[in-house]
Structures are given as structure tokens and as C-alpha cells.
Design a protein around this nucleic acid. Structure first.
Lengths: 153, 153
DNA sequence: TTTCTTAATTGGAATTGTTCTTGATAAAGA
DNA sequence: TCTTTATCAAGAACAATTCCAATTAAGAAA
């Protein structure tokens, strides 16, 4: 199903301080490091193209294809989450806590929503017994408090 | 944000028995009826192309573009839900109950998961006070009981 | 360090699901 | 019937993403 043969398990090896730690299978290249930095520097869920623009300031020669590759690698390493809302371009998020995403239809911003009780969630779902859950994605659309208050756009 | 000017409110007017009821703005055409029938006849969350193939047996002249149009209209009328899982092609679902979707990574099937307590869900999310929620999408990936049991593929 | 091996990067072409455009048709209302 | 408007069909267009082949750079070994 996966296009390339990524290992099933994420390669988060929480290595040396500050240093990224991709799985042992992945090399830590300048491009990957910069892409990751961009994501952590501004946690606004940028698209691949937005990441591309930002990384380009520090690595002028980088190509969009490489940004896609890096994002894919980081995602498979478990360091980054790909966020898909409806059919919009994918966005990327370095928040590793389990959380949901809120999409404000007014200002377009996407924000993280903490999950107070991940267990309560599972029990709210009538999953057939025996199901194995690997991943749960929760996407909420609506209007954020700022926009409700009229601080619109 | 929406490409065409659909009314904001869904047009479910639960009309005459058995008969579909699109909003007053929409006509119930043969194509729309057949597309809807196909969705209710086999609730396996087909893609637009799959719907196209199925409808074509009964309306040979129909085009894929029309299927897309019908699905869009039905979705905006609130009779059908568009289901987006990751970046895969959209799928369509005539289940109007609030529910989540389970995607089996082994057999690929997508099944509906009832929400036992929609309120419990909201309270499990740490939404900033004042947020307006319009829609919540929950997508679970994993392995379904049948595939866990070895009835794989 | 230098070499060696293999993975990663590039740039452009290709793919894919979906949407748009245009003209023809058909239905609804006057 | 006449007019108006929505819908349909076919293909072109589009945008996000992926693929491809040649080049470059990491990290391991010598």
C-alpha cells in the first residue's frame, strides 16, 4: 500500500540533545534538518509549498521535490504529522502529542486541540470488538473564538 | 471559500415517501437519483469513479463530470457525506447519522462507526472557550476484526 | 584523510483526482 | 408557447503530488 518501503515502526530514537534523531535507516541531511527547523520555528501548519518557501531562504538550492521527500521521511520517522483537512493541500505539524485539529472557516487558521482524555474518546466510539486501532484523526471545522468575537480577518 | 454559490444551509426537506428531497434550489434529475440510489444500494463508500461505473449500467450516457456534479449537489444538500481519508480519492457515504469512519489497512474497507455519545466527544476535546463547531470528522485507521482474525485480504 | 557504497537531492516530466468551460438540452414558470 | 434557468456532457485545464534518471553528498570502512 505504501509507495516506498518505509519500515513500519517510526524511528524516533530521541538522540543527542538538540540533534534530530531520524531512524537508523535515514540520514540526517542539511535539507531534512532545515525542513524540521522550519516546522518547529513556526507551528502554523504550513503546506509543503509554504515550507519550501521558508526553507529556501536558508537553503536556496533546495527543490520542492526534496521538501516533499523530507516531509515524507520526517512523517515516517514519526517526528512530524501530516494533517489532511478535506481535500486541501496537506499541512505539517511537529506536535507529537496526541491532538486534534481545529480549522477556522473564517480566518483559515489551523490550531491544535489537546485531547483531554484519549481513553474517553475510544469509549465514545462503537468500534466492533477486536478492532486494532493504529491512528485516530480528528478534524473540527468551525469558527475560532477570535473570529466569533468579530476580530474577523 | 466554496467554489460555487451553494446555500449555506443543507436542503434536506424529507419530502414525499421514498422520494428524494434535494433543497428547493435543486432539481431531482434522473442522474442525481441514480447516483443516490447507487450509494444507498451498496454502502461501501465508493469513490466517484466507482459510482460512475455503477451508475453507467443504468444510465449509459452519463459522464464522470456529471457524477462529480451530482455528488457535489447531494453533498451540499446534506443527503450524502464526502469522506476524505488522508490523500486518497474522496469517498461517498449516504449515512446521515453522526458517525466516524474506520479504515482497515489490511483489506482497505471503510466502515461506519457509530458515535455512542457525541457530547462525550466534545468534552474530551480541549476546545478554546467560545469556539463554534460546525462539523467534526473522525477517521480511524487500523485493522478490522476480520483481518485481525486472519481472514486477510 | 581518502575511498567506497548507498541513500538523498534535483529538476523536470508525468500522474491523478478533481474542477472548469462551453455549448447543447431539458425542465419550470409565465 | 415562450422564456428563463438549471443541468448535462465532453474534453481541456488545473494543482498537488509523485516519479524518473542523473548527480551529489552522508556515513562507514580502509
Amino acid at each position: 500500500m505504501a509507495r516506498k518501503n518505509f519500515p513500519d515502526a517510526p524511528g524516533v530514537h530521541s538522540g543527542g540533545e538538540g540533534g534530530l534523531a531520524l531512524g537508523p535507516e535515514f540520514r540526517l541531511t542539511k535539507q531534512r534538518r532545515e525542513v524540521f527547523e522550519v516546522l518547529t520555528a513556526q507551528r502554523d501548519h504550513p503546506t509543503a509549498t509554504e515550507v519550501f518557501v521558508r526553507v529556501k531562504e536558508r537553503v536556496p538550492g533546495i527543490s520542492l521535490a526534496t521538501v516533499y521527500n523530507c516531509l515524507e521521511t520526517l512523517t515516517h520517522s514519526g517526528l512530524v504529522r501530516q494533517v489532511n483537512l478535506d481535500r486541501a493541500p496537506s499541512r505539517y505539524c511537529p506536535n507529537l502529542q496526541e491532538h486534534a485539529h481545529f480549522h477556522c472557516e473564517s480566518c483559515g487558521r489551523i490550531s491544535d486541540v489537546a485531547l483531554q482524555d484519549p481513553l474517553a474518546l475510544e469509549s465514545a466510539l462503537a468500534l466492533p470488538p477486536g478492532s486494532q486501532v493504529h491512528r485516530t484523526e480528528i478534524a473540527i471545522s468551525g469558527v475560532c473564538p477570535a473570529c466569533v468575537g468579530g476580530n474577523d480577518k
